[in-house]
Design a protein around this nucleic acid. Structure first.
Length: 351
RNA sequence: UGGGGUGUGGCCAAGCUGGUAAGGCAGCGGAUUUUGGUUCCGCCAUUCGAGGGUUCAAAUCCUUCCACCCCAG
């Protein structure tokens, strides 16, 4: 058994500290950096800086171009989902397909059985069923939600050096270690959408997106027009452009009639949802009766009960929340937790 | 052209015993943030349909006109 480990480095602070921490712990460290977008001048510059950082640490850096795969496995499904009226979660997909898929494969090619990343989440060894995924120590920064679609056999090879770190301590620690991150503070560059403008991005992709249509209240009262259902997501408030007595939220997208149904905060809330493409991380036999579910990032897990239906490939589950929730949105991830933050399963919200 | 009502920012709407324009919605900006969304904070009428008058002072009182709405034999 070797103690070789690959560390996925993006150029940001978190992964750089992860790299340094792993090395400090005596691992035989390899740094992996991948281009998820076609290598531009800017990306090459980041890679060059990373090279400097790695040289300073005497760690070998392997750079690969995974832009074609990223396009196929993350971007294309993202665009496709929007075109179909869904609200995709590309980060969750990226973790499953890229970081704990292709990058893990790359790690193995370099002789490492494990891969470390800068995620704020924990992996622990459970006496009965092995490796489990836990939320990060710093719950406000916890990223386990985005990892809920990563298969168990991949997570078994994951290491999260920042598990017990707080975001605010990372920068100070890097400074103390004299490790300037190639990409300074926030790194919007990780995202494949320029300027956070996904609408323009989608329009430029030249896919077939729906056009304008009516906006109505649940009772059918017409209020105005929308600019294409793909531009809205369940629970959305801003951007409707309709002045009403009370704030209006998107409560339903009627794709068949190209109609947007809006209503009050109360009318918007749901207490059930159906989840497919399950990624079971803990055997259901060990699940508590009451679980806690996140259907969006930055949401406190909500108490709920779960009903598993069907078997393996086509298995799905029905979730019933104790209290009405902001509407679970098709395309987003539902992550099931125990009360103390162990991830039981993840899946794709269908309705 | 008989009677009644209304006219305040993009929308809705307080204010109308005169004292120098609430609030909500929408919008814009920012904060938060590995997705979308949510939430939070900030900014948004020198002006109250128009003109004239009374007054130290009017969206608020008087008057004329204009617009729209309702009832009407």
């Amino acid at each position: 058994m070797t103690n070789a480990i690959a560390v996925a480095v993006s150029g940001g602070q978190d992964s750089l500290l992860a790299l340094s921490l792993m090395q400090e712990q005596g691992y035989d460290v390899h740094a992996l950096h991948a281009f998820f977008l076609p290598p531009s001048e800017r990306l090459r510059r980041t890679a060059a800086k990373l090279e400097d950082s790695c040289r300073a640490l005497s760690v070998p850096l392997h750079v690969t171009d995974l832009s074609e795969e990223f396009e196929r496995l993350v971007v294309a499904p993202f665009v496709d989902d929007y075109a179909k009226g869904g609200t995709p979660n590309p980060c969750a997909l990226c973790n499953r397909q890229m970081k704990f898929g292709l990058l893990l494969d790359a790690a193995r090619r370099h002789g490492a059985e494990r891969i470390a990343t800068g995620h704020y989440a924990r992996i622990s060894e459970h006496p009965e069923f092995g490796k489990t995924l836990l939320c990060g120590e710093d719950r406000s920064k916890d990223q386990s939600y985005f990892l809920a679609l990563v298969p168990r056999n991949a997570l078994a090879h994951a290491v999260f050096p920042l598990a017990r770190w707080c975001k605010k301590d990372v920068m100070a620690e890097l400074a103390a270690r004299r490790l300037p991150p190639p990409l300074p503070s926030e790194s919007q560059e990780v995202c494949f959408i320029p300027d956070d403008d996904y609408k323009t991005f989608l329009v430029r992709r030249n896919v077939r997106l729906g056009g304008p249509g009516p906006v109505i209240l649940p009772d059918g009262t017409p209020l105005g027009n929308h600019q294409g259902l793909w531009r809205y997501t369940l629970g959305q408030r801003r951007g409707l452009g309709i002045a009403w007595k009370y704030p209006l939220y998107v409560i339903r997208k009627d794709l068949k009639n190209n109609t947007l149904i809006v209503g009050t905060d109360q009318e918007m809330r749901r207490s059930t949802c159906r989840v497919e493409e399950l990624n079971i991380l803990v055997p259901p036999a060990h699940w508590p009766k009451k679980v806690h579910v996140k259907t969006r990032y930055r949401q406190h897990p909500s108490p709920a009960t779960v009903e598993l239906r069907g078997t393996a490939p086509t298995q799905d589950m029905k979730i019933r929340f104790e209290h009405p929730e902001f509407p679970p949105t098709p395309g987003q991830v539902a992550a099931l937790y125990t009360e103390d933050g162990m991830v039981l399963a993840g899946g794709r919200i269908e309705e």
